[in-house]
Amino acid sequence: MASSLVNMVHPPAALAIPQTSICATEACDDNDYSGIDLAAKGEFFTKGSLKRAKFIKVKANAVNFFGADLTNADFTDADLSDANFGQANMNGVNLTNANLTNAIVSSARFENAIIDNTDWTDVIIRKDINNQLCEIAKGVNPKTGVDTRESLFCE
């Protein structure tokens, strides 16, 4: 009973969830994150400016890129499983050999993107964007063995 009373008087502390990243206030354009385990470091890039950034062979599973500007960023051979790219600008992005299993890309933009050999299994994506990606989809992901067109349910 006493512990219940203490919790009522002093409720557990709540931690705020950051709405923007350091890259939102200080541009991270052209930065090189290649080979880094961003998930283990607890990194997030919400609403950040990451134009032309390099994420080659990065582990970014479950990393938040929501609303980020990733124009011409390079994610070759990246693990992007469970990452959030909702509303991100991914125009010109290179996703060659990337694994996006279970990622969120709803409302992201992909003009002039390279998606060769990517795995889109169970990705949350708008139908019109999915159709756009099907126009350029080809290859098989070298790590998962999944056909890019099949993972996007292309006709």
Rank of each mutant, 00 (worst) to 15 (best):
A2D: 11
S3G: 04
S4L: 05
S4P: 00
M8H: 06
V9A: 12
V9C: 06
V9H: 07
P12E: 11
A14H: 10
A16C: 09
P18R: 13
C23T: 05
A24R: 07
D30T: 14
D32V: 08
Y33Q: 05
Y33H: 13
Y33M: 12
S34P: 02
S34G: 10
I36W: 00
I36A: 03
L38T: 05
A39K: 15
A40G: 06
A40F: 01
A40D: 13
K41Q: 15
G42V: 06
F45G: 06
K47V: 02
K51E: 14
K51M: 13
I56F: 01
K57Q: 14
V58D: 02
A60I: 05
N61V: 03
V63Q: 00
N64V: 10
F66N: 11
F66S: 09
A68Y: 03
D69C: 09
A73G: 12
D74Q: 06
D77W: 04
D79A: 09
L80M: 04
A83N: 07
N84V: 11
N84E: 04
Q87E: 13
A88E: 06
M90L: 15
N91R: 10
G92C: 10
G92A: 11
A98M: 01
A103V: 04
R109A: 14
A113K: 01
I114P: 00
D116F: 11
N117T: 11
T118L: 01
W120L: 04
D122E: 12
D128F: 12
D128W: 09
I129S: 08
I136M: 13
I136P: 03
A137T: 09
K143T: 14
K143M: 09
G145E: 10
L152H: 05
L152A: 00
F153G: 09
F153A: 15
E155I: 11
